[in-house]
Design a protein around this nucleic acid. Sequence first.
DNA 1: CAAGTTATTGCAACATTATTGCATTTAAAA
DNA 2: TTTTAAATGCAATAATGTTGCAATAACTTG
Lengths: 148, 148
Amino acid sequence: MIQTRDIQHFEHLLDKHHLKKTAPRLRVLSMMSSRSTATSQPDLESLMQDIDRVTLYRILNAFEEKGIIHKVFDLNGTANYALCSSKCDEHDHHDEHLHFNCIQCKNVYCLNDMNLPAISLPAGFEPQGFTVYANGLCPKCSKKAVDK
Amino acid sequence: MIQTRDIQHFEHLLDKHHLKKTAPRLRVLSMMSSRSTATSQPDLESLMQDIDRVTLYRILNAFEEKGIIHKVFDLNGTANYALCSSKCDEHDHHDEHLHFNCIQCKNVYCLNDMNLPAISLPAGFEPQGFTVYANGLCPKCSKKAVDK
DNA sequence: CAAGTTATTGCAACATTATTGCATTTAAAA
DNA sequence: TTTTAAATGCAATAATGTTGCAATAACTTG
Ligand SMILES: [Mn+2]
Ligand SMILES: [Mn+2]
Ligand SMILES: [Zn+2]
Ligand SMILES: [Zn+2]
């Protein structure tokens, strides 16, 4: 359920990034925050059929550039989008958390609280960031597997 | 430079997986083994213009299913392909090595020798595998940055 | 080695996904 | 309220991926 304070938060978010507070943008933010997992462009498209496809692409790109959302790939290589939890901005994304791809329900989970272990690289490589995916069964799907 | 023993190795690889030794397949294998980084479908397509686009898709899919190559995503979300180093087969891929995406030259490196650290998950998630990417500057690009 | 069998290829058509240009609308600033 | 600039929606186009099918080439069998 979307609350008034959510709306205000979304409006503030758009303000902060000098993006106009338009109906399509607010609806995309509401939709994404109402979901516990990341959402793919195709899913967003069918969830909000009255928003033009092109507009949706442009909104997603703008939000990503501004650090309002981040992109995560699912097992098909399709981009899924999730709201950034912490204070990401245009120049600094801080989405170095673990992602989980469920092989059953295909949902993509942001595990914001899990820190990544240190990863070492061969000489010469200068890492600036890491992306880590785990794949397997999510809690819901592993529970179903046991129940059967 | 492709050697006779490479050709024989490729032919053996196809034999092993009950794939016919055809010209397009052997050329794809040669091309991939001659490159030090993973190669995207678009790149393969322009590197081997005389192989039909559809054929290339089918070859890549077949090779991936058989565990001859594995798929790695670059920073644009485009699939890149690289030969599997160890003994992957249809049912068991063993490509749990680190991948490096260069933000400058966009090349994707398979760091086959780097083992992944242990990664812990919240309760309920049952991981079956991990995919880890580092992104930053590859040795060539970081060297160029210093030289300037 | 020749004939038969089947996988693979290449082409055309189609489907899906993403981008561009531009006129119209809407939000914010003046 | 008027002005200005950003954002939207539509149409056209591009890029990417899939399907069906006839022709071809690889392997099998006698
Ligand atoms: Mn995330
Ligand atoms: Mn690899
Ligand atoms: Zn699941
Ligand atoms: Zn590089």
